[in-house]
Amino acid sequence: MENLQATKLTLGDLIVIFALIGIGLNLLMGRTQASPAQVIITSTDRQITRIDITEERIIEVEGKLGKSVIEVADGKVRFVNSPCPHHLCMKRGWIDMPGDWIACVPNGILVRISGESGFDAVTP
């Protein structure tokens, strides 16, 4: 009759159950805050600079026409200065959404925030 203990929880059972609950909760909570997005700056000579968007930095990137100045602050990015004729990149202002980007076409510089945009399209 000593076999008839199947309904009783053993220590091993409790360990397994709590370990699995722990793993489950960890996966459920842990991945929800993603790692901080990165600012990816590409220039015409294929040089790529990556900066965490949480940093506070002003960097200069060499382009076809000259130096562009890009500022990363408060989780946002913008072109501060660029030697292009119309300054469209500067007029774009700050961007902060994953997947958003600013291009300075005359100077051949692309600034992109890593990640997928959650939207199909964004209008200003």
Binding site: Q5, A6, T7, K8, L9, T10, L11, G12, D13, I15, V16, I17, L20
Partner: peptide
């Protein structure tokens, strides 16, 4: 195989 032996309930969970 498990060292602290499992009952039916633990095995079923796994």
């Amino acid at each position: 195989t498990l060292v602290p032996p499992l009952s039916v309930i633990g095995v079923s969970c796994l």
